[in-house]
């Protein structure tokens, strides 16, 4: 049965059931997400400064090693079984930064190790992250296309 063609009886039940449903604590979740997400980003910023001050990186080029380092941290935390607990506490706070993306790839890789390296790890690693990559690349393409068209039409007047 589809979601959108409910009988009156079903609608009535839905109302009754909702009275008992525990509501998501949205405000509390937002505050937790803000602070945990902020902390992760602050750590990322510190790592970025570390590469700028101790190695030969500039503010533009430091982002690559920073992302790699943050994903490495995320990998350790995922492997030791900490990141999923952090995720339950922080919600979007730990899912949105790049560490959350790393966690989705790494957790799938660990999970499917029992089905072998090729069909297990290889075939399932991007099960969750695959759509992020697909739509990330696609939306970048669309934005770039719009930019190109605008520049062509208006002769670079916006530059």
């Amino acid at each position: 049965m589809g979601k959108n063609n409910k009988t009156p009886e079903q609608k009535q039940y839905e109302k009754l059931e909702q009275q008992h449903e525990t509501k998501r604590p949205v405000l509390k979740n937002c505050i937790k997400a803000f602070f945990v997400g902020g902390t992760i980003c602050a750590i990322g910023q510190a790592v970025s400064y570390f590469y700028i001050y101790f190695f030969n990186f500039t503010e533009q080029t430091a982002s690559n090693p920073t992302v790699a380092t943050m994903i490495f941290f995320s990998m350790l935390l995922t492997g030791f079984g900490v990141y999923d607990r952090l995720g339950q506490f922080a919600g979007a706070g730990s899912a949105v930064p790049v560490t959350g993306f790393g966690n989705s790839v790494i957790s799938a890789a660990i999970e499917h190790r029992t089905e072998g390296f090729v069909l297990g790890v290889g075939g399932n690693m991007f099960k969750l992250a695959g759509s992020v990559i697909l739509f990330g690349v696609f939306s970048a393409f669309v934005v770039a296309l719009i930019k190109t068209i605008v520049i062509q039409w208006f002769g670079g007047g916006f530059q």
């Binding site: 990141y83 999923d84 995720g87 339950q88 966690n103 790494i106 799938a108 660990i110 999970e111």
Partner: peptide, 13 residues
Amino acid sequence: RYPTEYGGQKPPT
């Protein structure tokens, strides 16, 4: 659902 180590948040229900 998801892999066991995936950090998704589950609702109170």
